[in-house]
Amino acid sequence: MELTKNLTQAKLIKSLVVVILSSIALTISAKIKIPFYPVPMTMQTFVVLFLGISLGHKIALASVGLYLIEGILGLPVFSNSPEKGIGLIYFTGPTMGYLIGFLTACYLASKIKTNDNFFVILSKLIIATSSIYILGLIWLGTLIGWDKPIFSLGAKPFLLAETFKIIILALLTKQIIKIKRFI
């Protein structure tokens, strides 16, 4: 019984460390801006999907959840914080829907299976990424008004970069899943 308790505690500690490190990776991915046309690209969505694929839905959701809580509490973890504000004020701004969409995306990405072929993986990644944009656009439209060109403002500039990230992840997914077995 003592051995079972120790193994459970070790697994819990390992999971907490992975969640914290994943939250840090997500923060770093938000801060690094890569020059890309038509807007600079961060690697946030790539990391969100990667977390879902590599860690499974429970740890990935905990990681993204921790990241969001850190931001809501005022830590400058989000892409444009602290320049554009911090905490709850930043969170409830124009990007809130996208940030919440990170939760659905990592969950959906976790549903990719070892025996999925490239096109199934690609399709699942497109659906996962689309969930970020659907929630983001719904919130953006609600916040700034549906009379504005919501798609042109909140999705169109990012489509090329998202396509690039999705294709890279689709090509790497089988290797990520193989590595996952050792974690």
Rank of each mutant, 00 (worst) to 15 (best):
I126E: 07
M1Q: 13
K148M: 15
G154Q: 01
T142V: 11
S54W: 12
I132F: 06
K14G: 08
V120Q: 10
S110T: 09
M96F: 09
I53C: 11
T4H: 15
F119Q: 07
T104C: 11
S63N: 12
I86V: 10
G136E: 00
K33S: 13
G56Q: 08
W146R: 06
I72W: 03
L160T: 08
L159W: 08
K5V: 15
L140H: 03
M96C: 08
I132R: 03
E2A: 14
M96V: 02
E70V: 02
T4Q: 15
I177L: 14
S123R: 09
I24H: 00
M43C: 13
T4W: 14
E2W: 12
L68G: 02
I89V: 11
I100Q: 06
A161R: 01
D147F: 10
I121Y: 00
F36C: 11
N80I: 01
G74C: 00
V18T: 15
Y67C: 05
I59R: 07
K11V: 10
L140I: 04
A30F: 06
S110V: 09
K178I: 10
M43T: 13
G56K: 06
K5Y: 13
I167Q: 11
L140C: 05
L160H: 02
G56V: 08
F119H: 09
N6L: 15
D116P: 03
S131N: 06
Q44N: 12
K11F: 13
F151G: 01
I150Q: 01
I24R: 01
K113M: 09
L99C: 06
V17S: 12
T129W: 03
L160K: 02
G74M: 00
T142F: 14
P76Q: 00
G145K: 05
L122K: 08
E70A: 04
K174V: 05
K58E: 14
A161I: 02
D116N: 12
L88V: 06
F78V: 04
M41V: 05
A155D: 05
T45L: 07
I72F: 09
I86M: 04
Y90R: 00
I138E: 02
L125D: 10
V77D: 00
L16C: 15
Y133A: 04
N117Q: 09
W139C: 02
K178A: 13
G56E: 07
L108N: 07
K124W: 05
I179Y: 11
L61Q: 10
R181P: 10
I138K: 01
A10K: 14
L7D: 15
L125Y: 11
H57S: 12
I177A: 04
I127C: 06
S22F: 10
I127V: 14
M41Q: 07
M41G: 02
F118R: 08
L135K: 01
I177N: 04
G141M: 01
L140Y: 03
V39Q: 08
L73T: 10
T92V: 12
L99P: 01
Q44T: 10
I138W: 02
T104A: 15
